[in-house]
Amino acid sequence: MILTIIQPCVQMQEVDTMSIGEEREPSKDLLISIVNGNDRGYIYECVESIIRNTQGITYDIVVIDNCTGDARLSELEEMGATLMRNERPMGFSSNHSQVLPMLDGYRYLLVFNDDAYPANNAFGMMIRELDDEPTTAIAGCRIIGVDGEDQPGAAPFPGLRYFVTNALGIDRDKGARYPRIFTEYIDFSKSGYVDWVSGCSMMLRTAFIREHGFLDTGYFMFLEDTDICRRARAAGYRVKYMAQATVVHYGGGSSKVKGKGITPQLYIETQRSRLRYLKKYTLMSYFLYWGFINIYVYLKVLKSALSGDMEWVNGALSKTKKRLLT
């Protein structure tokens, strides 16, 4: 295996710009984009809960099926959702970007996970607050697990220190569920302005997307939410965490294989996303992390091979054979 450095001057721009046609007066409040990316059936509870709990706004739901092979998908259309079917699996940003041509006529776009559902009129609350705050471009909500515990819905922008300590597993206190970057940053029971909010449930102004673009499709999965919030902050907009708007999240259902947790392929994609993020915003940190994570991943592969965990080895090498760095 040969590590090959790609020069940092490679063009990074893969942000989807608006392709929604001529701007016209919006006729509806919200377009909800959901990617169905697993075979656990979460999507049906998700759509049912949205219909049951969302009040006081006009909205439409689009479900993008990411090649799940689910035979029940026609039920979603019977519920009133628009169904799109991928011919090949796509990443988070590329999937949600498919709704952009449909966005004209809506004031807001909601990116929402298929393994989540609103516990109250969360989307109505978010729209009312955004209507009152024209300088806020992006909003997120309180995310609670099925166990009743808060999940990270907002955090400060990550950097080299967090990525390294997280990779090494030393970024949290003993027995803590989440890294300190989340637990020390915000009281999740209180609303406030933050660096970024989770793409599990993220609402964006259509006007902002039209002017500054959408999710960066160079990310396959992870950090695309952080990236767009960083671009919004750099453009002078605010990002708000809204604790009163609550969604329940099963957690990891969109990115795990049933019974096995995060796959080695997705682990590698996580590292690629981190490298892309650092390359865009802090070049020196990018080089340092590139050296660290390449060594760490190949040591992890070697350790797995020696212990006989060939599933992890084969899964990781299927990705790293094209270079970890992209």
Rank of each mutant, 00 (worst) to 15 (best):
A207V: 13
Y277T: 01
V99W: 02
P89A: 01
S94G: 08
V247E: 05
G259M: 07
Q98P: 00
G261S: 09
D115H: 00
Q55I: 08
L110M: 13
D225R: 11
Y162V: 03
S254V: 04
L109M: 09
G218F: 15
I2F: 08
M102Y: 12
Y241K: 14
I32Q: 02
Q265V: 12
E87H: 05
K28Y: 05
N120C: 09
L306H: 03
Y59M: 04
F188L: 14
R231A: 13
F92K: 05
T4M: 04
D114P: 02
G148S: 11
C67I: 06
N120L: 03
L283T: 11
C229F: 06
P101R: 01
L302P: 03
M18A: 08
K303H: 09
R274I: 07
D171V: 04
S27N: 04
R177T: 11
L302C: 06
L103Y: 12
E269H: 13
N314D: 10
L83G: 07
F188N: 10
F182A: 09
H212T: 11
V99T: 13
N314K: 00
R205F: 06
D115K: 00
R24Q: 05
A232L: 09
I186Y: 05
G37H: 04
L275P: 09
Y185K: 12
M102C: 05
T270F: 04
R85Y: 00
F222H: 07
K240Y: 10
L110A: 10
T135M: 12
N95Y: 02
F112G: 02
H249I: 06
N120E: 07
G291L: 14
W290M: 12
A167M: 11
I32S: 02
S74F: 11
Y59V: 02
S318R: 08
D104K: 00
L302Q: 06
T183I: 12
I64S: 10
V247Y: 07
G124T: 10
V146I: 14
P156R: 15
Y237L: 09
F92R: 03
G80W: 01
L215W: 11
G291P: 00
E14D: 08
Q11A: 06
A71C: 04
A305K: 14
N86R: 13
R210D: 15
E133D: 15
W312S: 13
F214I: 08
Y281H: 15
G153E: 03
G21E: 12
T263E: 12
E45S: 12
S318H: 03
W196S: 07
N53I: 10
K303M: 05
R40H: 08
H249G: 01
T263A: 14
T320N: 02
H96R: 03
M202R: 07
M18P: 04
T54Q: 05
I5N: 09
Y250P: 01
P89L: 02
T136Y: 01
V239Q: 11
L325E: 03
Q244P: 10
I20K: 00
G251I: 07
G169P: 08
N294L: 03
D16E: 10
D227P: 04
V10F: 11
F292E: 05
E75A: 15
F157T: 07
I209C: 12
E22W: 05
K260C: 14
F222R: 02
S74C: 07
L324C: 04
I228P: 04
I181S: 12
D16G: 06
T226V: 15
D39K: 14
E78A: 15
R233P: 06
G192N: 10
R205S: 05
E129N: 12
T17N: 01
F222I: 09
T246N: 07
G199D: 01
